[in-house]
Design a protein around this nucleic acid. Structure first.
Lengths: 184, 184
DNA sequence: CCTACCGATCGGTAGG
DNA sequence: CCTACCGATCGGTAGG
């Protein structure tokens, strides 16, 4: 309850702009009473960041197990990102934008998890290129382009403007896999 | 000078986490002396946000004048985003991440400029689809996918890991226009 | 350009 | 769960 309210505030105003008094008002307590439920402001941010990091890494493990082409694995990972965003937009947005306010050693630990996820994603791309299933793309460029392409959804689903998650998913996957331009 | 230092701090720590004492230290003044050069902390953020908004809109105006296909105009706009990022990464990152801390009426004014840019971009995509130069994509999905695909560069150029801007540009444009997957 | 200082607000604690 | 309060820090001003 407190954690959900905090995630919403962190997403809307940012971690630093959210005061414990803001959070207390939201859950109808006095600021001091929050500390019967949590240890500190940062502890909430830590939970948000590490819960989501875990979700992504678990999803990656599932995808790696698939007997599928690199292109299909990438499609599955794009769906993973969209699925996580759909299930808990608020939390994943805070995780995306506010992790840098973690203090050490949590910051370094978080960065290491992020890096691990990226590395495993990159391996899938590189294997696809090696096997000729993907065009000879620079793996880093491809990696970050995919990440970014689903990142805007975290803002999008929040305001939910009429397209269904399924439609968006299909469009993004097609765009990234087949491109925008018609064949000449 | 003050403005450049502020942009760097806003990018690295965020607007709210940057104190006027941080900024003063950076330019070797006392905090109070800053106010002989600037009016307020927010004024600096306003300059950063509106300068960049103007850059994007001017670039858009140039692209609209081109006698070219929709696909070529989109390629030109992708280059515009990358060009602006290359020329002043710091400022454009602050602009991207920190505009929400603007106060009214600047916040609404900024959002209006942003919306105008998006609308003009969307028109180009929709014309391309109508003329059959682009696949029948959902224009909003295409729009935000393009925006996001170049957004990560703002972080990338900052740490500059060995690929040239030209290489990155070519890779992103190819990926978005032709897709990742090889033809079957 | 500085010293000195303002009221407001911050995250958090003591004590009940 | 609250009242009362802490020291630290915030953006900014007065006055020279």
């Amino acid at each position: 309850m407190i954690c959900e309210a905090a995630a919403r505030l962190f997403r809307d105003k940012g971690y630093k702009s959210t005061s414990m008094r803001d959070l207390a008002r939201e859950v109808r307590l006095k600021a001091s009473s929050l500390y019967n439920h949590i240890q500190s402001k940062e502890e909430i941010l830590q939970e948000i960041c590490f819960d989501n990091a875990r979700r992504f890494l678990e999803g990656m493990t599932e995808v790696e197990k698939l007997e599928a082409s690199a292109a299909d694995k990438i499609r599955a990972l794009i769906r993973l990102h969209i699925c996580i965003a759909t299930n808990d937009v608020t939390s994943v947005t805070a995780f995306n934008d506010e992790w840098r306010h973690l203090s050490e050693p949590h910051l370094s630990e978080f960065k290491a998890l992020r890096r691990e996820y990226e590395q495993r994603f990159r391996l899938i791309i590189e294997e696809g290129v090696r096997l000729g299933e993907l065009k000879p793309l620079h793996s880093t460029v491809a990696l970050y382009t995919i990440f970014s392409s689903v990142r805007w959804l975290y803002d999008w689903f929040r305001t939910g403007k009429g397209i269904s998650a399924n439609d968006v998913e299909r469009n993004i996957i097609r765009l990234l896999m087949e491109g925008m331009e018609t064949d000449k």
